[in-house]
Every structure is written in structure tokens, then in C-alpha cells.
Computed example of a mutant assay.
Amino acid sequence: MPETRAEVRMLGDSYAREMRSLLYHAYRHEPTFAYLLESDRPGFDQRVRATIRELTHQHMLEQLPVLGLVIDERLVAVALIAPPQRRLGITESWAWRMRMLLTTGFRCTKRYLEYHEAVLGCLPPGPYHVLPLIGVHPEFQGKHLGEQLLEALHAWCAEDGGSQGLVLDTGNARYLDFYRRHGYEEVGEVALGPIREHVLFHANPQTEAQLSRQGMGL
């Protein structure tokens, strides 16, 4: 299938509704959300919508970066980015926790917090960018937009000379080969009930170059 090219944009509040809709469709069938938000219990779709809404709301409230791909003014892919110094900012917010408790319940909020802390616990010390949410709209999958989004993310994060790279996680095993082909290495694994959440790291080009020079004794 021919590649579809999209425009890369940093997104603001005007895209909030589209972001929530896209991420809801991207995550509602993901095994990680199925476990965290108890898909076997009535009200699962509402809990997915609420979780996406509260995460994106807090992200935008704290003015953290969001990178998206746009085709003909339609948002087709998006990634929320947590800079190194703000990796725990959203889940440490008591306002966020209270809204999650009210919309998803105690058990789901507790599961999400434990999952988030376990993923971050897999990382070695150092400054990293983290992607709490990333997705391509299902209608546009298979058009190489995932590759374009990763390329844009790698280029954007590489501009921060203080960051060692980019971290994301997935409980969907069918994505692993895709991420590995694009330079990600697994740095940890988290057990979420029957799900195995894989924590993946992509080094910034500057970091790779530094390691190469050190290896050559330069």
C-alpha cells in the first residue's frame, strides 16, 4: 500500500476533542486497558473514555507537549509527550486522582497508578522522554502513519540534548516487531494480571554517538 504523508504539528487545546476521540478508538481494544479498566465488568467503554479524558485534560492543563499528524485538517495520529522532569507529574496530581476515582472507581484508579509506577520502575536512572499515550486512528492504520509519527517523535526529542531517549510501553505483543524495527530495545517487563507489559527504549542519536565514541576510546 502506498505511503500516505501527513503534516506534523504540535497540538494545542483546539485539538482536545479530536485527541480524546482518536485515543479512545486506539485504546479501547488494547489488552492493557482491558485489564486496568476491567473490561469484563459493565461500563468498560465509559471507563476508557473517562481515563483518556482525564489523562489528556491533565496533560494539556500542565502545558505538556503533544505531537500529531494531520491530513486535510483531520487529526490521524497523536502522541502525548512527558518531558524528563515531568515523568510523574500527572499521576501525582490529587485533582487527577480524584477525577479518576469518581469516573473509573477505586480499583481501576489503583491499578492504573500501580501500572504507571511499575513501568517507570523499569527504567535506569537518567533523563528520558516518556510517551504516556500514542495512537493512530483505526481508519488510517496500514498507511505507514505509525512510522511517520515515530520519526517525528525521535526528531523532536533529539533536539533536547539533555534527554537520553524516548520510552514507551505496550501490552500488545503484535506491536513488538514494529517497535524493534524502528530501533527500540526492551528494558523491562511488567506483569498486569495475564498481560505482559513491555517497556521499550529508543536512544537519542546523540546518546548513541557518545556511546560509540566511548567504545572506540575517543
Rank of each mutant, 00 (worst) to 15 (best):
Q63I: 00
L64Q: 13
L64G: 07
P65Q: 03
P65Y: 00
P65E: 01
P65C: 00
V66P: 02
V66K: 00
L67I: 08
G68C: 02
G68D: 06
L69P: 05
V70M: 12
I71V: 14
E73D: 14
E73G: 05
R74L: 01
R74G: 03
V76L: 08
V76F: 05
A77T: 00
V78N: 09
V78R: 01
A79K: 05
I81M: 15
A82L: 14
P83K: 02
Q85R: 03
I90C: 05
T91K: 09
T91P: 07
W94V: 05
A95N: 13
W96R: 01
W96L: 11
W96Q: 06
W96D: 04
R97S: 08
R97E: 09
R99I: 00
M100C: 14
M100N: 10
M100T: 02
L101P: 04
L102S: 11
L102I: 02
F106E: 11
C108R: 13
K110T: 07
R111E: 03
Y112P: 00
Y112V: 03
L113W: 03
L113S: 08
E114D: 09
E114R: 10
E114Q: 11
Y115S: 08
H116T: 02
E117A: 11
V119Y: 06
L120K: 10
G121L: 04
C122M: 13
L123G: 11
L123D: 05
L123V: 05
G126K: 05
P127K: 03
P127I: 00
P127L: 01
Y128K: 07
H129Q: 09
H129T: 02
L131Y: 01
L131W: 08
L131A: 04
L131P: 05
L133F: 04
I134Q: 10
G135S: 11
G135P: 10
V136Q: 12
V136M: 12
H137P: 11
P138C: 06
F140M: 15
Q141L: 04
G142F: 08
H144C: 09
H144W: 13
L145G: 12
G146W: 00
E147T: 13
E147Q: 14
E147Y: 07
Q148W: 04
Q148V: 03
L150K: 14
E151H: 12
E151P: 06
E151K: 14
A152I: 02
W156P: 09
A158W: 11
E159Y: 04
E159W: 08
E159N: 12
E159T: 11
E159D: 14
G161R: 15
G161C: 09
G161P: 12
G162Y: 07
S163V: 04
L166R: 10
V167K: 07
L168V: 01
D169L: 01
D169M: 02
T170C: 09
A173Q: 13
A173Y: 07
A173W: 09
R174F: 06
Y175V: 04
Y175E: 14
L176C: 12
D177H: 13
D177V: 04
F178V: 02
Y179G: 11
Y179E: 13
R181K: 15
G183D: 10
G183A: 06
G183W: 05
G183K: 10
Y184V: 03
Y184R: 03
Y184L: 14
E185M: 08
E186L: 09
G188N: 07
G188Q: 07
E189I: 05
V190L: 06
A191H: 11
G193M: 07
G193N: 07
P194V: 01
